[in-house]
Write a protein that binds this DNA or RNA. Structure first.
Lengths: 355, 355
DNA sequence: GATTTTTTGAGTAACGTACCTCAGAATGGG
DNA sequence: CCCATTCTGAGGTACGTTACTCAAAAAATC
């Protein structure tokens, strides 16, 4: 029971190798009837193209370009480290990863970086979605060249991107509300604050949206007194939150949905107020410590390791034109409580940054 | 900047292709000094073996054998479907999946199935760990032949298996306790029951262990009044739980840590008692419905899709002898609440079975 | 039915590695 | 310094596919 090859198609179908090959590689100059006949044989004998041989023969290289924010947050550092880490290993599989950095929150810079790419440099592109009118235009141009673009971590749904890889942010926001709501005393009025990075980012907007929706529907006793934007910077986050804690000494909880853990923790420690219930994002070193000492109640996490892996697998599928399972692109939001933290080594990301 | 090939090693090192090849493939008959010299060149020019070409040349086929329980639970059905689903697609990548079924909870049958495997039939084996003295012996025999065995879903730590792929079950049990503990009124005595499938399974034992540990440490107000073994059967689960609900009319909560969702739901509906807090495992159709109607409070989930994917990737790494990242084998426990359920299509598993 | 156009056939080189044989060179022991 | 042993070199074939070219056959056009 040898694995059938093109030569088996030749034998069974009666057509020549040249014709069979033309059909398999969708090249012109074959009658529809012949195409059908060959494809029928392919189905009959169960032929599947050997990707190894095909790649070897065609000299194909999977060129995947990542454009990531250069910011120094723990999460983004992990993401970049993840890409770098895989560069060497993947060369064995004819995958060439290239990593370009752009300033965070800067859609224009992203568009410019995209404008420098083409069929020549990239067979697939991965970006962290940032809004700017030029971005969809660039994505469209690249798509016209046959180069798919994927969004990672933060989506741009109507940009023409082929797929989004990352957690379901609305659901994450819902989970945060669900947890915070249950952690607070029942049917007692309570004030909450939200600390975002920037509402220019769709992932942050989505988290907020989901959070608000569940609070309204299920926890009418809870009100949101402030939605702050800390720009994912330690300083700004610290200042905004400190101010907010002063303004609302009776604050009962906080949802920190961006990458401002470090600033959040220092503001809380500084304020020395009564403990409040906190749900944050990304299990960074800081978040882990906060969880351990009871400062944070829950942390929602996404694994950079899995995200980068999914980007690469998806890109390969797209380039090969093989079917891929959408489930492969779904990154799960992990929920960590104090009792359920994994050992430090298994964060699924390699940390470096600050907070 | 072409990708370096063996011929570049030949050019740079000055040795012949034959010698270089002997070094690369660790064949005998080369002086240590020569080996070192060649390897130095490899490092210097950054040569990485092209896996496509290597596989093609050696005619390698990755034969991976899955031995899975034949039981009719939703989760196991998904797992089997996942393997079957991939059989066709993976042939393009020279991966041959074969799927063998054994009765659930039957270590002896597992050992027998293993005894029929060898280097010839399998290059890597994936089993759902089931205790039996013959199993480690078979794993050792296969390991001696150079065939690695992986445990999936339920581990056998001291069996000689090379790796475990699945969720951290102790942590899952801890999460369950953490959630249940917080969902119950504070500092008020409360009775809990646990419904397991079979404590012969390590994953069930581990979940129970983690559950108990957190309850003891953090929720001294809570006591476990019953640990039942429903054999993951709808009938048995139904009977045991119905009995338990009668015996303890004041039961405040339940941790269903096996695959008995269907039986749990019917017992609860039948009993028509006051609502109790429930944390269950596996987001099956039944669990999803129970979550939606508020019968279950939380569901801990593992994705068969990701698990099978990890098994295959890990197996390939092991067969190739390439390094793999342990993070790739870590399957995350997902926590679903009513507000955070994904759309039905994205369960990350293809359902078929019964509960 | 002759001519143009389209379709098909036969053959071949190439991709990068594995693995084989046989001969020749270098090395070590006595 | 010779002989046996161990290393190394030269050259080849094979894997399954891609992607050519050139010629021949078939179909379409008038």
């Amino acid at each position: 029971m040898r694995k059938p090859t093109v030569h088996d198609i030749v034998r069974v179908s009666g057509y020549s190798l040249a014709t069979v090959d033309r059909v398999l590689n969708r090249r012109a100059g074959v009658r529809p009837a012949t195409i059908e006949a060959v494809e029928e044989t392919v189905r009959k004998i169960g032929y599947v193209r050997d990707i190894s041989a095909a790649n070897l023969a065609s000299g194909r290289i999977y060129r995947i370009t990542f454009i990531l924010p250069s910011a120094d947050s723990s999460f983004l550092s992990s993401l970049r480290a993840e890409v770098e880490q895989r560069q060497t290993i993947l060369r064995a599989e004819r995958v060439e990863l290239s990593l370009k950095l752009v300033p965070q929150f800067d859609g224009k810079a992203l568009a410019k970086a995209l404008s420098e790419l083409s069929k020549k440099t990239s067979n697939s592109i991965v970006i962290v979605g940032t809004d700017h009118p030029d971005v969809p235009a660039q994505i469209a141009r690249l798509a016209a060249e046959g180069v798919p673009t994927l969004t990672l971590v933060s989506d741009l749904p109507s940009s023409g991107r082929l797929h989004y890889i990352g957690i379901a942010n609305t659901a994450a926001g819902r989970a945060a509300a669900s947890l915070l709501g249950r952690f607070l005393p029942k049917n007692t009025p309570a004030k909450l604050a939200v600390m975002a990075g920037s509402l220019k980012l769709k992932d942050h907007r989505d988290r907020l949206k989901g959070f608000q929706a569940v609070l309204e529907a299920e926890f009418p006793n809870v009100t949101i007194v402030a939605v702050l934007e800390g720009q994912d910077s330690e300083d700004t986050t610290f200042k905004l939150l400190s101010r907010c804690l002063k303004d609302h000494p009776d604050l009962a909880g906080l949802y920190s949905l961006g990458a401002g853990n470090r600033g959040v923790v220092s503001a809380l420690k500084e304020a020395k107020g009564p403990p409040i219930r906190i749900v944050a994002h990304e299990l960074t070193t800081v978040a882990r410590a906060a969880l351990e000492e009871g400062l944070f109640d829950a942390v929602l996490h996404q694994s950079p390791y899995q995200e980068v892996g999914a980007c690469i697998r998806l890109s390969k599928s797209l380039i090969d034109g093989t079917p891929f399972d959408p489930a492969d692109a779904e990154i799960r939001t992990e929920i960590f409580l104090r009792d359920t933290m994994p050992p430090e080594t298994s964060l699924g990301g390699r940390e470096k940054g600050t907070g």
